[in-house]
Amino acid sequence: MVAMKDTNVVQAAPRMGAAHALPPALSVAGLTVAYGEKPAVFSVDMTVAQGTMTAIVGPNGAGKSTLLKAVLGLVKPLSGEVRLFGLALSRARDRIAYVPQRASVDWDFPARVIDVVLMGLHRELGLLRRVRPEHLDRARACLARVGMQDFATRQIGQLSGGQQQRVFLARALVQQADLYLLDEPFAGVDAATEKAIIAVLKELQAEGRTIVAVHHDLSTVRAYFDHLFLINTRAIAAGPVADVFTSENLQRAYGGRLGEAQLAGGAVTG
């Protein structure tokens, strides 16, 4: 599926795939990131076509989050190039939205749910512009999309893990991005939240937007995503889930650490 969103962005050196008229939502070439001496991500190439929904999957410490952070410019790579919609990150910022790991922030921060969602409107609000009813309406609408409309004035520290994750998603929704990058959006959330989040992500995809999520649950890869990127420091395999989600590829990614049951439940069947 190819996004039909009209775009007047000048495409700097677009690298077009044969089947796509649009530049990829995300392209990564030769990306290497290291913390200290050991590379966390080594020489990774990755292409994400517009309008797809991709899971980044791999064992713990495989560099999944690091890859995402390097794409977003949050960690500095040793080498490699990242392009978003054919553009450098600095020119594509208003087209991307990031949903960090829930556990990466201090939820004791003195803010209400609506305050957090309004952070997603920073590009419009700037330093000093007044928050208008229109902004509040949009923030509330995004909260409603994730089923959190009744929690707008709740202190964020009083939310459950799943509710916190929904608030993060609402903050990304209000950004109206073309590419959504999510880090473990289903980690530690309740089943209802997981359902709500995946429903919203599928809606986003239906609107032509692109979704890339770090994902850890092999049993839901097939149901949730259409593309898969397997990584274990190096890229292991990439492509449509139907082609890539095989027990052979998973064994290579997980280095034999994967239980037979997981393989049976995830890849071989279905």
Binding site: G73, Y98, L127
Partner: peptide, 22 residues
């Protein structure tokens, strides 16, 4: 007063703030 919003955002969620270009 001038730094309020960026400061609040960078304090609560530095990663997110950075992706906004702050």
């Amino acid at each position: 007063r001038l730094m309020w919003r960026p400061l609040a955002m960078a304090t609560f969620d530095e990663g997110f703030a950075a992706t906004l270009g702050l």
